[in-house]
Nucleic acid binder design. Structure first.
Lengths: 113, 113
DNA sequence: TTAATATTTAACGCATATGTGAACTATATC
DNA sequence: GATATAGTTCACATATGCGTTAAATATTAA
C-alpha cells in the first residue's frame, strides 16, 4: 500500500468521533473490546466494526487476553499517526514559508506587516 | 461548533485524496478553481464540490480575482490543521508516556529495554 | 455436557458522499 | 446585444458508512 492510500485510511479512521474516542481511551491504556463499547455507548457489534476499521488502518492492534481467551485486548500502534503528523508538518511548513514570503513582499513595498 | 465537530470536518475533508491533493497544490500558492480541477483530473462540478467541502471545513478560503471577477482564487487557511496537529501531538505525547512507563516497568523487572 | 460470556459476522435499512451531464449565474469580450 | 467563459448548482445513479437485531464462533463455568 502506498503512502497516499495509507494516509487516506488513517484520516478516514480518525474522522469518526467514536473511533477518535477509542483512540483517546487507548492512549491511556490497552482495553477490552467490551469496555470500549460501553465507554462509547455503543452496541458490541457497532464497536466491533469500528475496531475492524481501526485495525485495517493500522492504528490499533488486537491481542487475546492471557487468562480468558474470549477477551480481546486492543492497544494503540502509533506508526500511522506519525505518518499523518509528518504530512501535516510539511503542509504547515510550506504555509509558513509562504506567509513569511508574503510578509517580506509587503515589507519591501513599505506596507505594515 | 465545538472542537470535536471541527476535528471531524477537518479529518473528513482531508480523508479524500483529491481534496488532499488540492491542499498540497495550495500550500505552494493560491490557485484558480479551474486550475485545480485540471490538475486533479476532475470535471469542474466535481472540483467545485470538493472546494465547497474544503471551504466548509475552514481549510481553504475563496476570493474573487481583482482583474476578472468570474475567476475564484482559493488559498489555504491553516487554523484547522493547527487544531488537528495539536490533537495528534497530545495523542502521541500520551503514547510516549505510556511507552516510557512500560520501559521503566521492564527495567525494574530486570528485562532488556 | 449444558449454559453463560465475549466478541465477531451477517443481513438489512438509512443516510451521506462522489462522479456525471445539463442547466443556471455572473462576468467578460466581440 | 449576442456569445463565450468561469464557476456553481441541480438531478440522477452508484457506492460506501454506520447502527440495529439475529445468528454464529469460541471459550469458560456450572
Amino acid at each position: 500500500m502506498n503512502a497516499t492510500a495509507r494516509l487516506d485510511r488513517t484520516l478516514a479512521a480518525l474522522a469518526d468521533p467514536h473511533r477518535r474516542q477509542v483512540v483517546e481511551l487507548l492512549r491511556e491504556r490497552p482495553r477490552r473490546a467490551g469496555e470500549l463499547a460501553e465507554a462509547a455507548g455503543l452496541s458490541p457489534p457497532a464497536m466491533s466494526r469500528h475496531l475492524r476499521t481501526l485495525r485495517a488502518s493500522g492504528l490499533v492492534e488486537e491481542r487475546h487476553d492471557g487468562f480468558d481467551a474470549r477477551v480481546r485486548v486492543y492497544r494503540l500502534t502509533p506508526a500511522p499517526m506519525t505518518e499523518l503528523t509528518e504530512w501535516l508538518r510539511e503542509t504547515e511548513e510550506m504555509w509558513a514559508d509562504q506567509l513569511s514570503a508574503f510578509r517580506k513582499h509587503m515589507l519591501a513595498r513599505g506596507d505594515a506587516a
